[in-house]
């Protein structure tokens, strides 16, 4: 009997939870705020779904009832992607070590 592809995705999902568990525990507490903003940015990879939805319209019809939701989702996810990565960048740039010359 063939294995349902769903099982493979479920395996990836479960293993990723474990990867996430160990990776996040190793994050230093002083970087917990950047951790939140970067997880925010990467969870906006949901834009992948938004793009598929937005381009789902049949030929000639750009804005169908389903693609409009896709376009809206693109805006929301894009705000998050750009905002999330840039604000993380901005924060991380501020973390400096003690100057050596002192």
């Amino acid at each position: 009997m063939e294995i349902d592809p769903f099982i493979f995705r479920l395996s990836i999902f479960i293993l990723s939870i474990f990867v996430g568990y160990y990776v996040v525990w190793s994050v230093t507490p002083s970087l917990h705020t950047p951790l939140m903003s970067v997880t925010n940015a990467i969870s906006s990879v949901i834009i992948v779904g938004a793009i598929i939805a937005a381009l789902s319209g049949s030929d000639g019809v750009v804005f169908s009832s389903s693609s409009i939701y896709g376009f809206l989702a693109i805006i929301l996810a894009a705000v998050n992607i750009f905002g999330g990565f840039l604000v993380t960048q901005r924060m991380l740039a501020m973390y400096k070590k003690k100057k050596k010359d002192k």
């Binding site: 990836i12 990723s16 990867v19 996430g20 996040v24 990879v45 992948v48």
Partner: peptide, 11 residues
């Protein structure tokens, strides 16, 4: 999306 979702969820 599945990997990211799991990462963010556990984070």
């Amino acid at each position: 999306l599945i990997i990211t979702g799991a990462l963010v969820g556990s984070s």
